[in-house]
């Protein structure tokens, strides 16, 4: 009974919608690792927003009299083989990275969730067909399949995003299906059926909210892979095309000068490492924060 008395009384419906979000945020900040992840991602977002203001040079302006300058002086991170400022290119690259992550996430999340919950809830023939399609996608290594797609569609950043999205929804679908199977025979689903809710309504109102936390965790953990795949495609020349300052592509072109000019590959490499690490740590933190058992304790 004590927790009834102590339970916060939501003042309005809007506040009750924001409160859990603040709870999760507070929980994430409590552990050092997830706080670090959150801080790096926040920094990434801020850098992307203010990239034009923070950049010391135009990322695409070449200066052939000033090539391969080491870090220091006028150029914080040095210059590349065409005399472009690496710091400015990295800053503008954050926009491309965030763009990739955002587009992949908003396509992969809903597709995976839809396929998984429909297969799990309806079962039978729907389950068989949807899960076999998922298996086909799962049976290829992600990067190889993405390579095949990009090769077929033609190399460009948008095609790389499509290819990454096409290869990263199956694990989400599997996860959503497994979660759905644990809920589908529960009493509250039976109660919803007794109220005359259609299967679509049950999936949208009852099953999706239950699957959402684990799917969000999985998506966050996936982002590291997405960044690496995008960088890999860029490195192979199949993602962002020059002169776009994509981090993977920067490493690819810098590779030729790597032995004499270490700064060409080091800074983009460190950026990729930091961002993927940050997303991994955040995902780990989210797993604890969104755990329903933890939710109830708060």
């Amino acid at each position: 009974m004590t927790d009834i008395v102590n339970a916060p009384k939501p003042a309005s419906r809007r506040r009750s919608a924001i409160a859990p979000l603040l709870n999760v945020l507070r929980f994430l900040l409590r552990s050092p690792t997830s706080a670090f992840g959150l801080a790096v991602i926040a920094l990434l977002v801020l850098l992307a927003i203010f990239a034009p203001l923070l950049a010391t040079h135009d990322p695409n302006v070449q200066n052939l009299n000033n090539v391969l300058q080491p870090p220091g002086g006028n150029h914080l991170f040095g210059t590349d083989e065409l005399g472009r400022d690496i710091f400015s290119r990295l800053l503008h690259g954050t926009r491309i990275t965030l763009n990739i992550i955002f587009l992949v996430t908003i396509t992969v999340g809903p597709i995976g969730l839809a396929v998984g919950t429909i297969a799990g809830y309806l079962g039978g023939i729907f389950d068989t067909i949807l899960m076999r399609i998922t298996d086909i996608f799962l049976s290829f290594p992600g990067l190889i399949l993405a390579l095949a797609f990009v090769a077929a569609l033609g190399p460009s950043l948008n095609n790389a995003i499509i290819a990454i999205a096409l290869t990263s929804w199956p694990p989400i679908a599997r996860l959503a299906r497994a979660e759905t199977l644990t809920f589908r025979s529960s009493d509250y689903i039976a109660a919803a059926r007794l109220q005359g809710a259609s299967p679509f309504r049950i999936i949208m109102h009852s099953i999706v909210p239950m699957c959402l936390p684990s799917v969000m965790i999985r998506l966050t953990l996936n982002m590291a892979t997405v960044i690496l795949t995008a960088a890999g495609l860029g490195f192979l020349g199949l993602g962002a095309q020059p002169p776009m300052p994509e981090w993977g592509a920067m490493i690819a072109t810098g590779r030729r000068y790597m032995l004499d000019s270490w700064w060409l590959v080091t800074f983009p490499g460190v950026s990729i490492l930091l961002v993927s690490l940050a997303f991994n740590l955040l995902g780990d933190g989210l797993r604890d924060a969104l755990d329903p058992k933890q939710m109830n304790r708060r």
């Binding site: 509250y188 109660a191 239950m210």
Partner: peptide, 12 residues
């Protein structure tokens, strides 16, 4: 239903 802990949707 029998179990009031299982018959209400935990997030509704």
């Amino acid at each position: 239903f029998q179990d009031p802990y299982g018959s209400l949707h935990p997030r509704h």
